[in-house]
Design a binder for these strands. Structure first.
Lengths: 210, 210
DNA sequence: TTAACTTTTCCCCATTGGGGAAATAAGAAA
DNA sequence: TTTCTTATTTCCCCAATGGGGAAAAGTTAA
């Protein structure tokens, strides 16, 4: 049934206890109502059109389709629905895969009800709720290595190279000759101890020089 | 003077009023003490070794060196110091430039004292304080376009291509022939309406297909 | 069976990327 | 100043790459 003026929350969580706890909690918050509660993504997706959730609380480790694949599918079917991941995993693969899949938030399972409620509220206000460690991981993924062995020009050129540009177009972009680009790239290779574009880009990405 | 057991906060903000407000506030919080307060980065950097701040509250729009360049320099000189940007700017160039420069947090200037204090606390606990809009921007930067015209294999290949791999190495990575890679890339080009690697990568990045 | 895709294979060739090395310029040291 | 060292530019060389075209082989659907 559609309850007007309440935010419809859907729960996808295979652990019976956790699922029930979440669901009960949601139904006890005046502003919220439980749009549905599932133990796997497949069933949730089947009923998405009826449940019409505004927000989905999604586990990652699920039988069948995992929460990351599920998030992709759900965002394709219903782009306006926000998916908030609630999981015990704090490893970067899961975090970034979930965010790429379209998750709006990422919470770890140790949160209390108060935090959950404010996360939902934040989501409704257009925010992206994250637990502290996750926020830090996300921010860290932007921080460049402060002690790169490459100078500014070299970094610039390698960045362009990593964007798939040819020597020729790099030359045109930074107003130097193609040979000069080549010169810098040779220098970059010797600094990074590599001898091809591929390796240079790999090292630079890994070390966050670019 | 070094006050033990208090967290040393440094303020870099060129607006006299804002600077004073922040500085006074910090000195009124029992746990915190003002390590220094400057109107530009140059002076702050000059005294960094004496001030020894644990956290720097940094404006972006500053006379001389801006807060982003300043953050880079400071993180190079004192990597353990956390820089929290406090600014009116919410545009993505500034946000991502600041984060790449090494900022640990990014707050917009409308925060109240309570929020500032909890942001500092969060930073001390190893977190990354962000205001709501910023968190959303950061998360959005990961979200891939859900309706890419490319299928999974094409996306995979284009991703590898964008990482600087040659047809040959893509072929080896995904266990197909080089000609098959070529076939897919031709298809990608026709879907994206381009006719070179460079353009394809540009379009794919812009549209967040990869 | 035939028509219509999709995938694989092959040919062709200008451009590219990378190595080597000489010529030139610029800085630093004596 | 001259000299030595380092940085930059230029050029040669050539295998490999990237991209177009198109035929051949495989698949699917009527």
């Amino acid at each position: 049934m559609i309850t007007p003026n309440k935010t419809r929350i859907l729960v996808i969580e295979d652990n019976q206890t956790v699922n029930e706890t979440l669901s009960e909690y949601i139904n006890n918050v005046p502003k919220l109502c439980l749009a549905g509660s599932y133990f796997n993504c497949e069933d949730a997706i089947k009923n998405l059109k009826n449940d019409l959730p505004r927000i989905i609380l999604m586990d990652i480790d699920l039988p069948g389709m995992d929460g990351i694949e599920g998030t992709k599918k759900i965002k394709k079917l219903s782009p306006k629905t926000d998916v908030i991941i609630i999981t015990v995993f704090e490893n970067s693969e899961n975090v970034f895969a979930a965010l790429c899949a379209g998750a709006t938030g990422y919470l770890t399972k140790n949160i209390d009800n108060q935090e959950l409620e404010s996360s939902i509220e934040e989501c409704l206000q257009g925010g992206a709720p994250m637990s502290m460690k996750i926020a830090k991981m996300v921010i860290n993924s932007f921080n460049k290595n402060q002690k790169s062995p490459l100078n500014e020009r070299e970094t610039e050129i390698l960045t362009l190279l990593a964007q798939g540009k040819s020597y020729q177009s790099i030359a045109e972009l930074i107003f130097v000759s193609k040979d000069n680009v080549k010169y810098h790239i040779k220098k970059i290779y010797s600094i990074l101890q590599v001898d091809s574009k591929e390796e240079a880009i790999e090292v630079a990405n890994k070390q966050k020089y670019i």
